[in-house]
C-alpha cells in the first residue's frame, strides 16, 4: 500500500530525517510514535506531498509520488496537525469545496459531503461558520475533509490533540469505524491513544525508525520472563519466609496488600527459565492459595522509554 524508502530530509544544515524505511499493508492501522521533534510530522508531510524529501522515495500502490503526483494525491486523505480550515466558510460550503478540489463534480461533491457529515456527526452544524466551531468540531471537520473522495490511505497527524476526554473517545471510535476499508496512519506522542487504536506501531526517534512491530508483539518482545507478579493469600510472615528460602528465587520485593490477607509480590527468578509453575507449586505445597502468577508485561510506555531512552510526554 505505502512504501517509504530511505527518506532523508535536511532543513538547512539540520538533518530532520536520517533515512526512514517502512511499509504499510492494506487495511492496517499504524501508529507513528515518537517524542516531539522526532520527525513524525515531517515524514507525514513528505508522504502527502506537502514537503519534498532531500532524497528517498514514497510509493503508494506502486506509484511514485514525484512521477504521478496527481494520481497519488487522490489516494491520500490528510489531516495535518493544524486542520486546514477556511474560517469564513460554513462547514458544508467548505467540505463541498474540498470535494470539488479533489476532482468531484459539484453534484457528486454535495452527495458525498452529506454522507460524510452523517458519518462524522456534523449535520447539526453544517450551516455554521467554521470560526464559530469548538476545537473538537474543527478537528472533526478536518477529519471529514480528509475522508472526502474516499481515499484508501488516511494520514492523520495528531488527531486527538486539544480534545477533551469525551471528544477523544468519539474521535477514537470514529477512526476505528474507518478501519477495514482504509489504511490509516496516525501520529501521536501520547501512548495510550496509539495503544488502543493501532494494531501496528512504528517508533521514531531523532529522525530514525527505532522499532516497528505489531502492538501486542512489541509489548511481548520487550517483556522479561524473569520478572513475575505473584498474588498470594496467607500469612504475610510465612510468605516472606518461603520466598526468602527458595533457591529458585534470586530476589523479591513486597508490593502491597491487595485485599485483606492477600499480598502482592514482585519476584525475580534465579534462572533464565519461566518459573511460574514452580512458584505456584511452592505455595500450594505450603497450603497457600495463589490468586495469580504473571510474567510482568511491559507496557508500551516502558517499551517506548526503552527504545528511545526518553520519557514520553503525556
Amino acid at each position: 500500500m505505502l512504501l517509504v524508502e530511505n527518506l532523508v530530509k535536511h532543513y538547512g544544515n539540520q538533518e530532520a530525517l536520517k533515512g526512514i524505511n517502512f511499509q504499510l499493508e492494506e487495511g492496517q492501522i499504524v501508529g507513528l510514535l515518537g517524542p516531539n521533534g522526532a520527525g513524525k510530522s515531517t515524514t507525514m508531510n513528505i508522504i502527502t506531498g506537502y514537503l519534498g524529501a532531500t532524497s528517498g522515495n514514497v510509493k503508494i500502490q506502486g506509484m511514485d509520488l514525484l512521477e504521478q503526483p496527481k494520481q497519488v494525491k487522490k489516494l491520500i486523505g490528510y489531516l495535518p496537525e493544524q486542520p486546514p480550515l477556511y474560517e469564513k466558510m460554513t462547514v458544508r460550503e467548505y467540505l463541498e469545496f474540498v470535494g470539488e478540489l479533489k476532482g468531484l463534480k459539484p453534484r457528486e461533491a454535495k452527495q458525498e459531503v452529506a454522507e460524510i457529515m452523517n458519518k462524522t456527526n456534523l449535520h447539526e452544524r453544517e450551516n455554521m461558520l467554521i470560526c464559530h466551531l469548538s476545537k473538537g468540531y474543527k478537528q472533526r471537520v478536518g477529519l471529514a475533509q480528509a475522508l472526502i473522495g474516499n481515499p484508501p490511505l488516511l494520514i492523520l497527524d495528531e488527531p486527538m490533540v486539544g480534545l477533551d476526554p469525551n471528544q477523544i473517545i468519539e474521535m477514537r471510535e470514529l477512526i476505528r469505524s474507518l478501519a477495514g476499508t482504509h489504511t490509516i496512519m496516525i501520529s501521536s506522542h501520547i501512548l495510550s491513544e496509539i495503544e488502543t487504536i493501532c494494531d501496528h506501531i512504528i517508533i521514531m526517534d531523532n529522525g530514525q525508525v527505532v522499532a516497528v512491530n505489531e502492538t501486542k508483539q512489541l509489548e511481548r518482545e520487550h517483556a522479561n520472563p524473569k520478572q513475575l507478579r505473584v498474588i498470594v493469600k496467607g500469612n504475610k510472615q510465612k510468605i516472606h519466609k518461603i520466598l526468602r528460602e527458595s533457591s529458585l528465587i534470586k530476589r523479591y520485593s513486597y508490593i502491597g496488600e491487595t485485599e485483606e490477607g492477600v499480598y502482592e509480590f514482585q519476584v525475580i527468578s534465579a534462572q533464565d527459565a519461566d518459573i511460574r509453575d514452580d512458584v505456584f507449586l511452592l505455595f500450594s505445597q505450603n497450603q497457600m492459595i495463589v490468586y495469580s502468577v504473571n510474567v510482568e508485561q511491559m507496557s508500551l510506555e516502558d517499551v517506548f522509554i526503552k527504545v528511545t531512552g526518553k520519557e514520553g510526554e503525556e
Binding site: 502527502t48 506531498g49 506537502y50 503526483p69 496527481k70 494520481q71 494525491k73 487522490k74 491520500i76 490528510y78 495535518p80 493544524q82 486542520p83 486546514p84 480550515l85 477556511y86 474560517e87 474540498v98 478540489l101 479533489k102 476532482g103 475533509q145
Partner: peptide
C-alpha cells in the same frame, strides 16, 4: 496564516 496552504498543496491540483 490559516494553514490552508497544506490543503491546496496536498490536493490533486497543480
Amino acid at each position: 496564516k490559516q494553514k490552508t496552504e497544506t490543503l491546496l498543496l496536498t490536493a490533486p491540483v497543480s
